[in-house]
Design a protein around this nucleic acid. Structure first.
Lengths: 263, 263
DNA sequence: GCAAATTTGTTCGTATGTATT
DNA sequence: CAATACATACGAACAAATTTG
């Protein structure tokens, strides 16, 4: 037994999926059928299918069966070039839409605004004292009705208390963007930002919102915006499920993309 | 039974790991011990541990036991700002070392050079005819002896045949970088590049090289370099295991990082 | 709307194989 | 070689979700 049986079964099914014989959305044979076909026990069949689910190739639905996953046409976010707008990653939906696909419709939830004591992660990036409070603005983003990203921005509380940027506490979407508002209100200009991209597994909230498995992967992008004094003025944390998101970074002189390179 | 037993067991173990009670490298109780502790069958215990493995929290070693994973101090690659050097992501080890940690020692294998018919992925990005050949230069990269990335660069075959850049076929590391060589030899200047970042599961070769599970995650970065005419001059594909790699993108005026923000 | 049939999910028990100490 | 610990594989029973009649 060079390869265990459940590996072999999984590999054959994977081959049939990648060859297109089992198209996206198609139902795999039931456990009982596979059991007869491969003359294996039910547990062995289930081990094989578990391998495919862990690769994100299939999904099982209790009471229904196992199905080849429908791959979502990936959403492509350009992390560079949003400086003028001073937006968080994925915020300028118009531009992004152009990059990835034509007819996507973006939807954003009303922000959930909170005043809170920041986590160590935010303290380090926003460079505030651990005891001070910060304003957090959280939004859920959809594209074509599909959950696309979860985003939370953090601002120093002084922006409200001594800076007079009272609208930061308003639970309303800011049409011209928060950065424009802060410039108008406080003379703060975002002259640059640093994105920090990591990957991890989703927490429970993210699993539920994105409808992804506990062992799926999400990108976590920390964007720290800097003002004209080189001081961090806000930190935005955006979480993207990796199965439907990609990123572009343009540096120097780069021609516009002529077409989507995906096969 | 709100939650199945193997979820509860996994959650409790996860809690003990995240609380530091089970430190990185520490051995978990054996299956037999856990079986007695939770009064569950061996299969149930194994299901619980499988959940932790799929989260990348623990790893099991046959004949030894189950151990909390040793998290590698992440390697941080800056995707912007390498324009002058015209390097592929992670190539300018000196700079990267500065960003992430102090005393890392980079090592690169000698390139494996091939002349081949490009895949559709490369054809689209390098904008060559599907029938023409390309030069590929493949390298394995290590940091502190740990496999860090796999990188393959593709160049149009004309660079050799009509451009006279014969050294492209030499299986030697180019000290001053390929981009510098092409500028000197052919007057080709890389004036910009586009990085395309995606995530996927590793293929067999990558599993073996990085010593990662079949359901782990790797970043795949496609870098397309453009010359002064706006024509793609090379495509570099770099694969990074997500458990030990992060990325930074700087846009606009950004102060140097004062310290590593990780807690 | 309900009952039956189908399908996957959870849990147990048992046996044997393989890797490491 | 023996003991220990995980890996594979089988069989069985009941539960939960969904579809079908």
């Amino acid at each position: 037994m060079a390869q265990p049986m459940y590996h072999q079964i999984a590999d054959e099914l994977r081959g049939r999926i990648e060859a297109g014989e089992l198209a996206p959305g198609a139902q795999l044979p039931t456990e009982l059928e596979l059991r007869e076909k491969y003359e294996a026990s039910r547990n062995t069949i289930r081990d094989a299918i578990k391998r495919l689910t862990s690769l994100g190739l299939v999904e099982t639905r209790p009471g229904q069966g196992t199905f080849v996953v429908q791959r979502i046409d990936p959403f492509v976010t350009t992390l560079t070039g949003e400086l003028e707008a001073g937006r968080a990653p994925g915020e300028s939906a118009a531009y992004l839409t152009e990059v990835s696909d034509e007819h996507r419709t973006a939807k954003v939830s009303a922000p959930r605004v909170e005043v809170q004591v920041p986590s160590a992660e935010i303290v380090g990036r926003l460079r505030v004292e651990p005891t001070t409070q910060v304003v957090s603005r959280h939004q859920e983003r959809y594209l074509d009705g599909i959950p696309w990203s979860l985003q939370t921005s953090y601002y120093p509380m002084e922006f409200v208390t001594t800076g007079g940027a009272l609208d930061l506490l308003k639970a309303e979407d800011m049409k011209d963007g928060v950065v424009g508002y802060l410039e108008e209100k406080m003379g703060l200009e975002q002259v640059g930002y640093r994105d920090w991209v990591t990957a991890r597994t989703p927490d429970l909230n993210e699993q539920n919102f994105f409808k992804i498995q506990h062992d799926a992967t999400v990108f976590e992008v920390f964007r720290t915006g800097f003002d004209q004094h080189g001081t961090p003025m806000r930190v935005t944390v955006t979480v993207f499920p990796a199965d439907r998101n990609q990123f572009i970074i343009n540096v120097g002189k780069v021609p516009p993309p002529e077409y989507n390179v995906e096969a």
